[in-house]
Design a protein around this nucleic acid. Structure first.
Lengths: 187, 187
DNA sequence: GCTGTTTTTTGACAAAAGTCAAAAAGCCAA
DNA sequence: TTGGCTTTTTGACTTTTGTCAAAAAACAGC
């Protein structure tokens, strides 16, 4: 829990009251590798903070698993579309390593937002950061070549390569596993 | 201004106080076609609401203009990265048609956020919606073919095709103008 | 209605990336 | 260490998309 409070401070520092309220709404979960945190067609009712471990969001396309994001230490993860709209998810969330997570239910978060303006602000600022991050990924996906995307990954998030099978990385970069393998061999 | 207040209501309905405060912070701008609202390397200090007209965000890549978003009636537009971080923008914002815009300065928005919790909430909810929208575009860009992306555009945002030169649409879809032309001819 | 400009289309070719199948390498547990 | 699995790489070929150049069409101003 200390990690969560520390991490939140970087977005927007909360007062004692808000911190305690947050504290009371999050519960710890220890889950083993490969566990499915969310299955598609179910509505995602929780937001998770990753204290330790790695996980991914993926969905099926023509029988293939497409990984479209990873979560590691200090990331907030959920199926955003499903969590925000409370409609069934298209994606699955799966643990790539055994994890220590902190989970908060949508309803509890809503209550927190009503009771603590500071938490509303925290969330707004968090969205700003996540929006910018997604925008960068979008520009990468749309306007860069496969090799450039891989090089970006190497410089910006090399830990992904160390902790995740290349098959997942390939779909994360939007390329086939074979192409990724060839790019790696000629660098 | 009526359009702005009406539009905001769809995100989160504001009380009288907050509405008036908003009202006082936005100023109207009438600008002619082709005007540059923002030039790259300048910091974007305003958020705009489009009452009437069309505009685009674009940047230069190897001497080519890459359009990465459009704004039309009832859109909020700005260079999000620059506006949020108050650092120089990589992109330009240009009017594709003459426009009626409502503009608010970053500082005034910050003040509003401090004075009206409702507006903080409104903004948080707006970010949620914009985040989801961007996520969909990202998945499209990364995992769909050029033809599929064009068909999506046709069904989901056909107004873009009616109001914007195909050259801009092509880069918006992440394909060359020639490829777009060929896709269109064989549908 | 004509001219000059911009936008869009077409053609020939090149480059990038995908597919399918098989081989190689890594990993794990008996 | 030795099979039996999974993951990664390699090879041959196909498909998709990009590039460059030129033609055709659309548009604006006179």
């Amino acid at each position: 829990m200390e990690a969560l409070l520390q991490h939140i401070k970087k977005f927007y520092p909360l007062g004692q009251d808000a911190q305690e309220a947050l504290y009371n709404c999050f519960t710890q979960k220890q889950l083993p590798k490969n566990e499915l945190l969310l299955q598609h067609d179910n509505t995602c009712r929780h937001l998770y903070f990753v204290e330790k471990g790695a996980l991914r969001g993926f969905y099926n396309l023509d029988g293939k698993e497409i990984t479209h994001w990873f979560g590691f230490e200090n990331d907030f993860v959920t199926s955003f579309h499903s969590f925000i709209t409370q409609t069934p998810a298209v994606e699955n969330i799966q643990l790539l390593e055994s994890c220590t997570l902190w989970s908060i239910a949508k309803d509890d978060l809503t209550t927190l937002l009503n009771q603590h303006q500071e938490i509303e602000r925290l969330l707004r600022i968090a969205y700003e950061k996540y929006y910018i991050r997604l925008e960068e990924r979008f520009v990468n996906a749309q306007f860069k070549t496969a090799a450039e995307r891989y090089e970006n990954l190497l410089t910006q998030t090399p830990h992904i390569l160390e902790r995740v099978p290349l098959g997942c990385v390939a779909s994360y970069l939007g390329i086939s596993q074979e192409t990724l393998s060839r790019i790696r061999s000629r660098l």
